[in-house]
Structure formats: C-alpha cells, structure tokens
Design a protein around this nucleic acid. Sequence first.
RNA 1: GCCAGCGUAGCUCAGUGGUAGAGCAGCGGUUUCGUAAACCGCAGGCCAUGGGUUCGAAUCCCUUCGCUGGCUCCA
Length: 648
Amino acid sequence: MAEERHEVKWEDKSCSLEGGSTFLDVKKAFGWKNDVLMVGEGDDARELRARVTGSCTVVPLTFDDERARWALRHTAAHILAQAVKRLRPDAKLAIGPAIEDGFYYDFDVKTPFTPEDLEKIEAEMKKIVSENSPVVREEVDREKARELFREQGELYKVELVEELPEGEPISLYRQGEFVDLCAGPHVASTGMVKAFKLLSVAGAYWRGDERLPMLQRIYGTAFMKAEDLQAHLDRLEEIKKRDHRRLAKDLDLFSIQEEGGPGLVYWHAKGALIRELIEDFWREEHRKRGYDIVYSPHIAKLDLWKTSGHWNWYKESMYSPMAVEEVEYLLKPMNCPFHILMFKNATRSYRDLPIRMGELGTVYRFERSGVLHGALRVRGFTQDDAHLFCTPEQLEEEIIGVLELTQYMLKVFGYSEYYCMLSVRDPEDKGKYAGDDDIWEMGEAALASALKRKNLEYKIDPGEAKFYGPAIDIKIKDALGRLWQGPTIQADFNLPERFDISYIGEDGAKHRPVMIHRTVLGSMERFVAGLVEHYAGAFPLWLSPTQVQVIPVSEKQADYATKVSERLKEKGFRVVSDLGSEKMGYKIRQAQMQKVPYMLVVGGREAENGTVSVRHRALGDLGSFALDEFMDKAAHEASTKALEPAMK
RNA sequence: GCCAGCGUAGCUCAGUGGUAGAGCAGCGGUUUCGUAAACCGCAGGCCAUGGGUUCGAAUCCCUUCGCUGGCUCCA
C-alpha cells in the first residue's frame, strides 16, 4: 500500500505522488497559488485535505467556481460559530450553511446579539483566521457523534445526528478547539478566509417552524479578496440607493400612510401617472390580443367565496366578513369568481371560446404585519388579472398566447432575462389540492408542452402549485441581477366544476370549459416598485412623469422658454418650465435629481436662432438642436417606448 | 404573528438626565447668471403614542402604533 503511487495530471503537466497524499500535495506539486480552494476531479470538487485515491486528472478550483465559493463561505460560517462559542460559551449551535452571496449561522442564546456583539464577534473571527487552524474532516459513527454533541450540550446537533439517514457517513469538521457536525466541504484552513464581514442579526425559527424556538441568526459574507468584498458591499449600497421606498419618496411617486393603515398604497400624482401609462399600454396590448376588458365589484357575498372554495382554502388571507343587511360580505382577495359569474351570465357556445376576460382588479389580502415591505408586499393591490375560458383542446394554444404576451411585455420594460418554473403538486401531500389526479396530470402536461413549444427552458418546482391547479411561474431578473416574482399562468380545472360552468359544443351538448388564471405584471404596486429599482428611478422617456424641463439661462429668456414649452405641450410632451430666480446650475441639479430625461437650456443664442440646447440626464450636454428636430427625435423615442435615449 | 433594531421639522440626520439643533426643502428679500447647489433673513417640532421612574425625561422603564432586517408567506 505504501508503495502505491498516483499519477496526477493537470493540463500538460503531471506529477507522481505516493499513496496517502492529499490534494494539498497536488497543489504544492503543481505550484498552485493560495487562491486555489478546492480541486476539480471529473465532475467532483474535492477538498484540499481529501486524499488522492487514484490516478486522476485535476483542475484547480478558485473562488470563481461555485463549489469552491460555497466551501469558503461555509468555512466562514464555522469560524463565526467558533468565535461565538468563545465569546458566549452557553450558545447552542443550530445550523450554519453557505447561501447565495454569503453565509449564516443560527444560535440559541439567552440574550440576543446586539450590533456591538457583531463587532466583537467579527474581531474574534479575525483572530481565528490569523490562527490559521487546519480544518480537518473526521468520519464517525452515529453513536460517537451523538455522544460528542450530547456531552457538549449541543442538543440541536444531537437532533440533527439522529435524523441523518441510515448508512450515510457522519462527518465532523474540526478547527482548533471547535468541532461541528457538517457534511462539508470546507477549505483547508481558517487562514484561507481572508475577506469577510458580518452583516446583520435576525430572528429565525429552528427549522423555519414558528412552533419551534426562535434562534438568533447572524448573516455574513466572505470573499477571497478585500476588493471583492468591498465591491459586494458597494453593490449593497447601490441596492439601497435604488430602494423603491427611498426613490418613491425622493421622486414623489407613492407613499404608505401610517394613519391610513399598513400595506395600503397612496399613489401620488407622478406615480399615478406612471401607473396610468402602464395601464393604458396594458389595455391596448390586451385588446390587440383578443381580450375583453371588464370591471367587477370589490365585495361579494360570503356564499360566493364558499362556492369558489376560497373560504375554505384561503380564509386566513382574507379580511373578515362584514354584515350588510344581515348578509355577510367579503372584500375580494381575487377576481376569479366575478369573471366566472360574468361567463355564466349567458349561454356560451363553443364558437364564443376562447373568452379572454381581463381586469385591472384591485384586491385585498390580509398579510401578517411582519411580511409587509414597501409597495412590494402590501395588503391592497391591483392585479393585471385575466381569466381565459377555453375548450380543453384550446388550452395549450391559449397558454402559448399568454407566454407570447408575457415575453413581449417584459421586453418592452427592459427585462431581458427570466426563468420559468413549472409549479406542480407536492407529490407527498396530494390532499392539499383540489381536484382529481387525472385532471392535474392533464394540466401539468399542457403547461409543459406550451413551454417546450416556445423553447422556454424551465425547472419543475414540486409543491409550488396553487391549490386549484398547476402553474407556470416566471422569475424576472432586474438590472442588479436580482430575481423577482413575475408573470404567473395557472391552469384551473377546479373552479369550472365548482361553479358548474359550461358551453354548448358542436354536438349540441354541454361541456365543461377549462380556465386559465394569469397575470403578466403581477400587481401594479409590485410592478411599479420593481421598475423603480430596475431603472434606478430614471424611467424611460415614455414613462417619465416629466419628460422635458425647459431651463432659461436668465430671466431675459423667460418668454422664449414659455414659447418653447408651449410648443412641446402642443406636441403632447409632459413639460415643466422652470422660471424661478435660481441660477441655471441649480435648476439643472434639481432636474437631474428628479431624473428628468431631457433638459432644454435656452439662453440668448437659442432665443435668437429658435434653437434649444439639449441636455440628457445621463448623457449630459448634447449641444444645440432646432426645436423641431429635438421634438421629432424625442417623440420617436417616446412612441417606440425606447429604453435608451434617441439623441446619442 | 414571532425575534431584534429604529421612530426628533416636509426630507436627511445631530442631540443619551438639566431651556429642542443643523443642512436641504418652504416663505420674504437681494441677485439675472451658459450645463449638478448664489447671498441675506424668516418661519417651522406635544421629540410616534399612552403611562411610569425622577426635583427634572427626546434621553431611563413599560404599553400601543408604525417602520426596518429576518423567520414564514406571496401578486
């Protein structure tokens, strides 16, 4: 055994190592630098301390590799736990994984952590990093692991050990005096975690279950290089700057009023204008695609919600009933029952189908106070809702139509990347859903087939289906690379049953139509809030509340400025003419901060020649233009809903 | 709902037991100016709310409301 040697190849180099060597030896043999965190062998990523088990071909894995990155952050989580144990020996460890962009660790502590604690913990972590302890994996049997953690009083760990599946190796990772139950992988030593920062503390239930104890979670992030950490922190700053709550205030778009109640949005003039423009576009696009646009009431009898099943399935998200002349009414959390009633209002022929009924319908849902978030998560919102009634044969075509509309609208708003999820039933818990198996299978197949025909890649997401049917959920990526819940398309074989709706077929007999619920923008509140962040408040020209601001150089040009703004208004531009006594530079600054797309500076030269000096909020001074030329270009930019300025 | 933090002028924030402050915005003047902040002055606050401790509370303690970050959930 001792004589056994392994040939290890990397690119055109190779080395021969004796049996028992680890990938650390491989790293040394090839002269890899310290930024190598793991080693790739085939499809596997191996820890540096793992043994080389045979001759192989390898590649070095640095922080750029997702697995190496996660290992580094996972080790950072262990360092965090080690530091906490040093400072708070009574802390009980729960779990501490790497996550997207960082890591966290959950602790059960008698007194919660304060922001000052975080600083101390971070300082202790730095010490642990400088100790550069090797991070060593050890496999143990279940009994030994249980014994070890029981002795240390780590009851959450004992619980985890007990639940590990039979036959799976149980591994511990040690670094210095610290030991943790962990599947790994990790980097080779604490010293490799060079750039990290603790970011926040938050409560988190053990196993995410609110009946279980509340733990204290510390979030942090780690990188290879200080610059990368700084870049990440800068990005967090940028996200803060773009926060729709901040920008909605600065740009006077909308607000939430404490006196009015939480989760209820007040659309100020400028925000309302943006919304109106989006809604006009929405209506136009829907009419083009054969939708009927309707309005329905805000309340309806409780019985209607019993028929629809919402009273059963959705009760805890609905506002309490109100009695009107001794009949109980409910504020609507959804529009679907109303559209069904409208469908039912006449005898429908197969010739009428598909019927596409759209509504910008305002609904109210009771959300727990802790989940409200600006305009993104509210209690009253307007959905761009629609219900499509069709024959089973038409289902797939209709879904394709919705997918096409979705793709078009997302493109117009500048969302070029999105991911499709096919939300299907949780196979473990079929009782949670309404309807028979074969109905569900048919729906899932139609959705999947439509996605395939549109060449949209998708992931299957078990357990994410609505109670009444499977769905396509689309996540959209914004300018900062964040994912948002976007369009959703849901097949429904349940409500048509419940309301016993039908159409008369070619055969003269009654048939059950199929229903699709769908929303493209989601809700106006969420969509506009998302757009604010996506555009960082700088809306494209067609959506900007003020499109052009006319700025006279001095009082002498007030008349000319007024004339220019009148001409712009005649052409349909939204114009502000700033005749105040401040200096031009001040006015420009105000317009820049309000993110007005075009500023027209007019001084003596312009007044004389009938021109305007054009300044764009992002491009700066563009020089002199004849007013007509500016108007033509800007009008084109607005009417084409261009995302980029036309005057480049 | 739960855990933690926060709530001072329209906005952004100082003030940590001893008479409520600044900048910006607003208002009144002066200034008429060439591409991101002219100057002078004035006004503006039940320090979220209700209670308590104290000779004295923006400050310390408790209640309620709201917000923030999470847990959980979702358009």
